[in-house]
Design a protein around this nucleic acid. Structure first.
Length: 877
DNA sequence: CATGACACGTA
DNA sequence: CGTACGTGTCATGT
């Protein structure tokens, strides 16, 4: 134990310990979904946490090497030259590790031309001078020389990183037979193979210790080298220069100029949010609480954010509420508390005036006019509340702000947009929340009016932060969309239980039949839905060649099985694929069937903040991924029908909207001409790329340019293109060359767009929606290239999403304004499904075509395909 | 009972 | 080594 009166300075050689962790932990278990290896980072942080807990340093720094070059390599070029190249998988982890340390407020020290150990030596010397207990943590034996009564070395034992051996002067004496300051003399004589420093042949530790004991110092020994007899004596005399060189090189510098001294390394509070962010990115879960514990930081949920005094809310009756509203005519914040979809209470905040009331018929009548007026109202996650109001017969008239949407627009990558998060981030305050685990909570949650008060103030903070262009997206696109989506969700879509049920039964029988056949072939029954059991069957029983590796074994996905079928045909493979198809369809059908409500319709929920690009997502159930590709699967779409009291379904979709946006953004003359020519796009492009007449474009040619065109939008590489088209990489490369020779402005645009994003840190859609990309400047190649592809795609996908949203709410508004009963039911990114009332087809089609076609003025037309039918499948064209 | 991995459906 | 999503199943861990 260290003297508790003295401060403890801990200095760590980050590079050497992370390197040991890299080899100690299996990389398979430490890879993120983005293919980023994290084993060295995890191992290092894990060890660091243990060290912090065990040693409780008051001062802390971690040193890293800057490169392989140092004054030592300048003096002796072969220094460490035999070390194998550090693997790229390791080097890529260092910047991320340093990011983690920055988030934990731990100083990282580096210096050109010196090694981490020299920094350690310097700090250790300064620390000891200034009265610290110093702990040096390093995996380099040279640091043994630093050990004194005040400096202790923690050195990893052979077992790995988890066990550190403590070296004080006595322990060094016991292990090496010399005092710590003599250790470099021993090392100089014996040599250090890992540093490529040869010593005196035939001289090991034993001999070296003996000589030093005999002569007292290395200088004395070298002076009197001729007194040593025998072969080793000759060797010593012959290698005396090597020994002198070794001794020069293994002496650690204690006078490196550093920007900080020990007193400036006091342990500082970690940045809890930053640690959470980066750990989330690295997919560290168990480590988070350990870090918080070891650094004495509060758990994420008990952030030391300010607990503020919240004004009390007046409980009013309907009459008093009406009077209050009359005297508060400016903007106010509104919270309607719900139980399920039932209105429970209403809370209003105007300035610091808070009122609330239980929801009942008289309260409803008291607030109806106010809610339906254009008086600006600020809310958080308004959609469910808007729906509840609509069910009560009230149309909210003045929705002016939604803090949930604003928070998302500002930081679309953060999935959690709870009010508590926003209050924490933008007000630096803690939202009072009742502890749900306690029957009688000690802390009261905020009441609806108090929540409204927080929402009002959060909105003010967000307004300050939101750039004008983004604020316009909120105001002109997202808020109108929200009201439309609320109506779409309420309307739902009619689905035939009968059709689903009979199809499901059919598929169930088929799946069973296929399974039995498959079992007969392999001679036993397995769970065909279990990847693990399938691996046994495929790669052990059937001894098929191993496929693409996954975290837990070998892949059995459809692409892999198709490849396998080609190289090693086996009847089991085909049956397995058929079984997958049947059970997958059945599963989809079952979940749809379960979602049909009493009104015989399915009401999905659109998550407006559900994507990073501006698209919607759909849940409970997801109606944006209903199968369509195979004839069989389209039977599911047939079950989506026109509802009672309506005449037919109308579907409308944008054709090639993303390519059109590319044409617009890039200004590529060829691509613009393609869209204005009226020719089939892929045929037109094929003709240009392959230098033939449009009529001579073969299906194979069309397939290739089509894949290329779609791939472009996603940042496809020659490798990916070759894989998808099953052609040689060289051919794919050639194809890309030919394509860009004709449509070069597209490539120029994509390049420039990513470059600009790197410059400003975010991408922007045509309408000003932004998406930040901090990783574009990451030194880590995997992260950076992933960010580049996403950044290339974001303005295109995002602009398409903007355009569809604009069309959507305008259609909705037109239908209402013209008092038509027809209504939009579904949005599937570039497609709308509309339920058309009796006699309204022409008017509805006209509105849909006009609004979709006119949602944006691009340099190419927005082409809209419309179809009509009694069910979704028949309505498709 | 919650979570991760895998597989797979859509634009 | 192609973007953006949601969901069901199995296997594993608390």
């Amino acid at each position: 134990m260290t003297d508790s009166a003295k401060p403890t300075l801990m200095v760590i050689d980050g590079h050497s310990l992370a390197y040991r962790a890299f080899f100690a932990l299996p990389v398979e278990n430490f890879t993120t979904k983005d293919n980023q290896h994290t084993n060295a980072i995890y191992g290092f942080l894990s060890m660091l946490v243990n060290l912090l807990k065990a040693e409780k340093p008051t001062h802390l720094a971690i040193a890293f090497d800057t490169s392989r070059h140092s004054f030592r390599t300048d003096e002796y070029a072969e220094y460490k030259a035999t070390r194998s190249e550090t693997p790229q998988e390791f080097r890529g982890q260092i910047p991320l590790l340093q990011d983690c340390l920055a988030a934990m407020s731990i100083p990282v020290l580096t210096k050109e031309t010196v090694e981490a150990d020299d920094i350690l030596a310097t700090l250790a010397a300064q620390g000891a001078d200034q009265g610290y207990d110093v702990l040096v943590v390093s995996g380099d034996r040279d640091t043994i020389q630093l050990v004194t009564d005040d400096v202790t070395l923690l050195y990893p034992s052979v077992q790995g990183v988890s066990q550190l051996k403590r070296y004080d002067p006595a322990a060094v004496q016991e292990r090496y037979g010399v005092r710590p300051e003599q250790y470099p003399d021993i090392a100089a004589l014996v040599g250090e193979t890992s540093d490529n420093l040869p010593g005196v042949p035939k001289v090991g530790e034993k001999t070296a210790v003996k000589w030093l004991t005999q002569f007292g110092t290395l200088d004395e020994l070298l002076e009197r080298a001729d007194e040593i007899k025998g072969v080793v004596g000759g060797n010593l005399r012959e290698h005396i220069d090597d020994v002198r060189r070794n001794r020069r090189l293994n002496r650690l510098l204690r006078d490196v100029e550093l920007p900080v001294g020990p007193s400036e390394l006091a342990v500082a509070p970690i940045d809890a949010q930053a640690v959470r962010d980066i750990f989330a990115r690295l997919e560290f879960r168990t480590l988070l609480p350990r870090v918080f514990e070891a650094t004495n930081a509060e758990e994420p949920h008990e952030d030391p954010a300010m607990q503020v005094v919240v004004p009390g809310a007046d409980q009013l009756d309907a009459h008093a509420l009406e009077e209050w509203i009359a005297t508060h005519d400016g903007e106010s914040a509104l919270v309607l508390s719900l139980v399920g979809s039932e209105l429970q209470r209403i809370g209003i905040a105007s300035g610091d005036d808070l009122v609330e009331a239980d929801w009942n018929d008289s309260v409803r009548d008291a607030v109806r006019d106010w809610l339906e007026s254009e008086t600006p109202v600020v809310m958080h996650d308004a959609k469910p509340q808007v729906k509840a109001l609509a069910s009560a017969g009230i149309r909210l008239g003045g929705l002016a702000y939604d803090t949930s949407l604003a928070g998302w627009l500002l930081r679309p990558s953060f999935p959690d947009k709870s009010l508590a998060d926003l209050v924490d981030r933008y007000l630096g305050e803690k939202l009072p929340e009742a502890d749900p685990s306690q029957l009688v909570p000690e802390t009261e949650g905020a009441t609806p009016a108090q929540l409204a008060w927080f929402i009002r103030r959060t909105a003010d903070a967000l307004r300050d932060d939101l750039p004008d262009g983004v604020a316009a997206v909120l105001n002109d696109i997202e808020l109108p969309s929200l009201l439309t989506l609320a109506d779409m969700e309420l309307a739902g879509v009619a689905v035939s239980h009968e059709k689903l049920a009979s199809f499901s039964a059919e598929l169930g029988q088929r799946a069973e039949r296929i399974a039995q056949e498959a079992f007969a072939i392999i001679g036993r029954e397995v769970n065909l839905g279990s990847p693990k059991q399938l691996q046994e069957v495929l790669f052990e029983d059937l001894a098929l060649p191993k496929t693409r590796k996954t975290k837990t074994g070998y892949s059995t996905d459809a692409a892999v099985l198709a490849d396998l079928q080609e190289s090693n045909p086996h009847p089991f493979l085909d049956l397995l694929l058929q079984h997958r198809e049947a059970t997958k369809l059945r599963q989809i059908i079952e979940s749809l069937d379960a979602a049909i409500r009493d009104d015989r319709r399915i009401h999905t929920t659109y998550v407006q903040t559900g994507s990073q690009t501006g698209r919607l997502s759909s849940t409970d159930p997801n109606l944006q991924n209903i199968p369509v590709r195979t004839e069989e699967s389209r039977r599911i779409r047939s079950a989506f029908e026109v509802g009672d009291g309506y005449e037919t379904l109308l579907t409308a979709d944008y054709s090639q909207i993303e390519m059109r946006i590319m044409a617009h953004l890039s200004g590529d003359a060829g691509l613009i001409e393609a869209f204005n020519s009226g020719e089939d796009l892929h045929r037109f492009i094929g003709a240009r790329v392959f230098g033939v007449d449009p009529a001579e474009v073969t299906p194979a040619m069309r397939t290739k340019v089509k894949a290329m065109s779609y791939g472009l939008v996603y940042g496809l590489s020659a490798f990916g293109l070759s894989k998808q088209l099953r052609i040689e990489q060289s051919e794919a490369k050639q194809l890309m060359l030919e394509y860009f020779a004709r449509f070069g402005a597209v490539r120029d645009y994509l390049r420039a767009s990513v470059l600009a994003a790197k410059e400003v840190g975010y991408t922007e859609t045509i309408f000003g929606r932004r998406r930040p990309f901090p990783d574009l400047t990451s030194p880590n190649r995997v992260l950076r290239e992933n960010a580049e592809r996403a950044a290339l795609n974001a303005p295109i996908q995002g602009s398409a999403a903007d355009i569809m949203k604009i069309a959507l709410f305008r259609i909705h508004a037109d239908l209402r304004q013209r008092e038509l009963r027809s209504r939009v039911l579904l949005q599937i990114h570039d497609e709308l499904v509309v339920e058309v009332a009796e006699g309204e087809w022409d008017a509805t089609e006209e509105i849909v075509r006009t609004r979709m076609g006119g949602a944006a003025e691009l340099s190419v037309p927005l082409d809209v395909q419309v179809g009509r039918g009694d069910n979704w499948n028949d309505a498709a064209h």
